[in-house]
Computed example of a mutant assay.
Amino acid sequence: MTVSQPLSAPRAVAPAYRFAIDPSEVARFRRLLPGATDAGTGAPLAGTSVPAFFLCRALPPAVRSALAGTGADAAAVRHAGQRITLHRRPGPDERLTAHAVVESVGDYGFQRAVVLRVTLRDAADGAVAELLTTLAIGPATGQGRIDPPPAAVLRGPPLLRWHARVPDDLPERYARASGDDNPIHTDADAARRAGLPGVVLHGMATLQLAAAGVTERLFGGDETRWREVRTRFARPVRPGDTIAFTVHRDETYHDEAYRTEGYREEAYRAEGAAPGGDVLGLTASVDGNPVLKDTWFSGAVA
């Protein structure tokens, strides 16, 4: 993600705070979310003891602090983009420290947006994970612009296709699992006051469904076979919707036109992909309309 005009320097939004990986909370997270267990046996999927998306429970305190000085109505805030980078997989009972910084504030399309970076570090101050979150907080103001990197170009036949129906109770379950209590996901009246047709699914829950499908169908349930996921949230998903997912091997960073536009291969890897392994592009749509855009899993071993 680039900023086309210099904006204010990154600033901490709160003092560093603790993030404990409690095994009982990890078990509860698995129980609440689809894809965390094998559909046939009910057993936990193979690979990792701490699901990658469990680390997103570190986000709500940082988001609340970041929004405190903006005057934004929490119910009007929209999750516009997310990147999760895993430097290593943490274990149960680890105590991590979260450092939250507002990277930039600027116009993102037709919206005003805040880019928030939360870095999770271990007791030895080693990097464990990084969560880069883009939040739309209101109408654009014309003061600085935040540009996403060029869209990925998917090539070749798809590796994988599947459909997933959104369970009616998933917004409530994801709110409980993640700690994201924005009422548009659980209260139909609050959602309608925010201009929505009713309760909508968290964007991160849509991304988690995608990650669970890739992990189970392509990686045999071994989540450690991808190290980074990135997406832009295009439109909300509602309970009962059926999402169509397609996965391709993404070779965008080899494209000459992409490199000549200023995103050389090394820049692409720094901005959008963890080193090593394949880059897998994903599309997700409901009734032909995209709900996730510019989505890829990187550092993947297919």
Rank of each mutant, 00 (worst) to 15 (best):
R155H: 13
R18W: 06
V291R: 00
R31F: 10
G288M: 05
A284G: 11
Y258N: 11
V199P: 04
G71S: 08
T283P: 11
A27Q: 12
R95A: 12
A152F: 14
D73L: 03
V229W: 02
R78Y: 00
D169I: 03
F53I: 11
H185A: 09
T119V: 14
A46G: 09
R64Y: 09
L59W: 05
E103C: 04
L154V: 04
T215H: 04
V105T: 14
F110G: 10
A9P: 15
A177R: 08
E271F: 15
S285Y: 00
M1V: 14
G221S: 01
P34F: 08
H99S: 12
E25G: 13
D181P: 00
P149A: 13
E223I: 09
V50K: 10
V200Q: 01
Y263K: 10
D287I: 09
R112N: 08
R235L: 04
G221C: 01
L131F: 13
G35H: 07
Q208A: 15
L292N: 01
E271S: 14
D250F: 12
F19K: 04
G203R: 01
G213H: 01
G35Q: 13
L132G: 02
A190T: 08
R269Q: 15
L96S: 02
D222T: 01
R57D: 06
E216K: 02
M1E: 08
V114A: 09
E251T: 15
D187N: 06
A191E: 04
A100W: 10
R193Q: 04
F297H: 00
A123S: 15
T41A: 05
G42P: 08
T283F: 12
A267I: 15
A68M: 06
G198F: 04
R95I: 11
V279I: 15
L160D: 07
L59H: 07
V105A: 06
G126K: 09
E172P: 00
I84T: 03
W226L: 01
V199I: 12
A124C: 10
A188G: 03
F297D: 00
Y263L: 15
Q82T: 02
A270C: 09
N182D: 08
G81N: 08
R95L: 12
T246P: 03
R193C: 00
A80S: 11
A100V: 06
K293G: 14
N182K: 00
S285G: 06
T283I: 09
E172T: 04
L55Y: 11
D107T: 02
R173I: 06
V102L: 10
L201F: 03
G240V: 14
G35V: 09
F29M: 07
M204F: 07
D222F: 01
G240F: 10
L170E: 06
R176I: 05
V101P: 00
R161V: 06
S178N: 04
T295A: 12
V50L: 13
T246D: 03
D73C: 04
P158C: 09
A212T: 11
L159Q: 07
A12M: 14
V115S: 06
P290T: 01
D147P: 02
E223C: 05
